[in-house]
């Protein structure tokens, strides 16, 4: 009895599904008649994947200034910045080559957006640490984002012996801070430009004419001549009446050369320091009388931690 009801039910279910199948098969047949070359992928209503612009600059610095580029997540960047002496010191110093001013640093990408770094420079025996965070990333796809914006903050600690040890000297007097917004756009494969509003704060300044808070605007850019070679330039305009007239605005010109895991940056700059408070507010060299340094930055990256979502197949 029960079995009969069950089998009747099953048969009617089967028939129902069978007719349904025929009904469903109908539209499929009609497309079969149409061309077989239709764009099948459009049937999947493809959602646009958001892609971010990569390599706005070849490395984390334009020349002295930070660029919007970060060390990628899990990547350690060992970096040496080197400036020879002023070219106008003449043949006796072999046009500056006798002198060596340098910073070495270790910099690390914690996430794809956040990087940190620290270094030591022999200019003012300075230790520095910084962080850089990508707030907005240029990209396209779901949303079109025309530019990248990063925030950069650093602390520099000068450790030169006190000029007058008999005075009340405070550790805080050694500290200088920099805050920057890095606003950049990669216009095309070759041209990228960056605007960098900057605030430098010095806890201690030498004279009354020197301000503790200094506002400046940095301009930087690169133009790629080949896939692995670009020319770079940067100029930092310090707003008037903030620093004494013995200091000049920083102007640097250079090239980036990329070879496998290295990026070499060769440049000419009137700035002696390789740290923000120094090159933005304390550049004593003048281009017009040869007060420029020849210098280079070398970057070597190491993948410390594999941060891919699916590291192995």
């Amino acid at each position: 009895m029960n079995q009969r009801i069950l089998s009747k039910g099953l048969i009617s279910l089967a028939l129902l599904l069978f007719f349904q199948a025929i009904a469903f098969a109908q539209p499929a047949d009609s497309t079969q008649v149409s061309s077989g070359d239709e764009d099948l992928l459009s049937l999947l209503d493809p959602e646009e994947e958001q892609t971010y612009t990569s390599a706005t600059f070849k490395t984390t610095r334009i020349i002295n200034m930070h660029s919007v580029e970060n060390a990628a997540a899990g990547v350690m960047d060992f970096r040496i910045s080197h400036r020879f002496g002023f070219i106008n010191t003449g043949a006796y110093d072999l046009f500056g080559l006798d002198q060596a001013l340098m910073r070495f640093g270790l910099e690390y990408g914690i996430t794809d957006r956040l990087m940190v770094g620290m270094g030591r420079s022999n200019v003012n025996k300075a230790y520095d640490s910084f962080l850089k965070y990508k707030i907005i990333r240029q990209g396209s796809g779901k949303r079109n984002v025309p530019l990248s914006v990063s925030y950069f903050a650093s602390v520099v600690c000068n450790t030169v012996k006190w000029a007058d040890p008999n005075r009340d000297n405070y550790f805080s007097s050694r500290l200088q801070y920099t805050h920057q917004l890095l606003i950049a756009r990669k216009f095309n494969n070759d041209l990228s430009l960056q605007l960098t509003p900057t605030l430098v704060h010095k806890n201690l300044v030498p004279t009354l004419q020197d301000k503790n808070d200094i506002l400046a605007m940095g301009f930087g850019g690169r133009y790629k001549l080949t896939q692995r070679f670009s020319v770079n330039g940067e100029y930092i305009y310090v707003l008037p009446n903030q620093i004494t007239s013995t200091y000049y605005n920083s102007l640097s010109l250079g090239v980036d050369i990329e070879t496998g895991g290295h990026v070499f940056q060769l440049h000419l700059t009137n700035s002696t320091s390789m740290l923000e408070p120094g090159f933005i507010t304390e550049s004593v060299g003048q281009w017009k009388n040869g007060g420029i340094h020849f210098g280079f930055n070398v970057s070597r990256v190491f993948t410390v931690k594999d941060k891919r979502a699916n590291p192995e197949d």
């Binding site: 892609t51 899990g74 891919r308």
Partner: peptide, 27 residues
């Protein structure tokens, strides 16, 4: 990557974004 097969016509289409390839080394 996206792939679609139409059994009736035998058509196969595959599409992928170049930027979605992941390498061990970011550089």
């Amino acid at each position: 990557s996206t792939i679609i097969i139409d059994q009736a016509t035998g058509a196969v289409q595959v599409e992928t974004l170049i930027k979605s390839f992941e390498f061990e080394k970011a550089l």
